[in-house]
Amino acid sequence: MGSVFLPHLNSGWHVDQAILSEDERLVVIRFGRDWDKDCMLMDELLYEITPLVSNFAVVYLCDIDKVPDFNEMYELYDPMTVMFFHKNKHMMCDFGTGDNNKLNFVMTDKQELIDVIETVYRGAVKGKGLVISPVQYTRRS
């Protein structure tokens, strides 16, 4: 349900504008497909936290089939990817997954996601390009 209420970015231009126009807040974009199971789960979570983090982050959704412009540049090959931008700068975060560029796994806990966004925002405000996630998501096998 979350994907219905969250704003969608329908073209590359929209994505650019969303990232460019936000001066203070963190821009969180979920790349994926609305009908995908992972995306659905993540959208629900994002929808729930959006009003809570509205002071320092804004959440958008982007369909990678409709808007394929960034697929190659950001290597959007996973079914669900969440990326962070601040003042037109891509923010990296060390989740312990090996991919610091994006969040490509489904989270289940609201507070954890809020913590991640807060941490990224803190780092972005301080001018850092890479932050370390408060929780490590190294795959336990």
């Binding site: 009003p51 809570l52 983090v53 509205s54 002071n55 320092f56 809020i114 807060e118 925002y121 803190r122 405000v125 301080k126």
Partner: peptide, 10 residues
């Protein structure tokens, strides 16, 4: 209304 969290300023 859901109260938004404060900006995490250090």
């Amino acid at each position: 209304k859901i109260k938004a969290l404060p900006v995490p300023k250090d």
